[in-house]
Design a protein around this nucleic acid. Structure first.
Lengths: 137, 137
DNA sequence: ATAAAAATCGTAATCGTTCCTATTTACAAA
DNA sequence: TTTGTAAATAGGAACGATTACGATTTTTAT
């Protein structure tokens, strides 16, 4: 998912493409890892001086609902990144810089065999650690 | 990990075994799923009428640090359960009742091959859905 | 029994997030 | 291009989970 794809989704669904909505998308397009709302707030405050929490969180939720952003809970704080809309995969997440690396293994294929009679709605497989760049720094 | 094991760990490490510490352990021993602090507070308030947040959270952290409790972040709320100290495994978590089922598959064996030059500190594999009991209710 | 250390209490503060009403803006239709 | 209106944003209050803190109580070792 890139900036233009995301804007197209917004238009298709009839949402207005405001300056702040674009700013938010640009922010995530310029990052390649999970970021908390806090970082986005700082980024937008640099441009606007002040920004409403409502705007931040309403749009984060909207983007998540539209599949534009992926979300994960890290230490009680929600983090977001642009969706990797190609094939199903999971992530290594660097606990220093937040950058991610795709992991092409999904354990669900075999795990679901252990769960007959269970309704499976979702799953999470994440690996935490430090990326080579952070290890060298 | 059962009640007695947990008390032994406390004593070995030189922590005091107070009535409330035992109550907390008994609470988790009587549950077999992940529970939020909130549930523990309600449980202890039934017995004592009031309980300090400090006592709740200090002991949850202590137990987690000592390996007595496992922790997971579910929708911005930390949930705890007695550690399953036998072999390494993961959990299916029922989003209705919080009960868990062990999953004996760990994807790290194969996944770590994709992460040469990365430092791996931790990982999470959780499956969410509804257990047979909740499906029938 | 008693003293020292540790644990708990009661409450205030903090942090991330949600909610509310008034105002502003984007967009469509004239 | 103006205008009507639904949608979006502002600004700040409220909320829920968690953390922090000085005063008090309890556990445990002596």
């Amino acid at each position: 998912m890139n900036l233009q794809d995301a804007i197209n989704v917004l238009k298709e669904k009839g949402y207005k493409t405001t300056g702040k909505r674009k700013d938010i998308l640009e922010f995530f397009a310029s990052e390649d890892g999970y970021r908390p709302a806090k970082d986005l707030i700082v980024h937008l405050e640099n441009k606007y001086g002040a920004i409403s929490f409502d705007t931040i969180y309403r749009n984060l939720h909207l983007y998540h609902d539209l599949g534009i952003l992926e979300k994960t809970d890290l230490e009680g704080e929600k983090h977001f990144r642009l969706s990797c809309s190609h094939h199903h995969h999971h992530h290594f997440i660097c606990t220093d810089c937040g950058k991610t690396k795709e992991i092409d293994i999904c354990p669900m294929d075999t795990a679901s065999a252990e769960l007959t009679n269970y309704e499976i709605d979702d799953h999470k497989f994440e690996i935490y650690g430090r990326c080579p760049a952070c290890l060298n720094a």
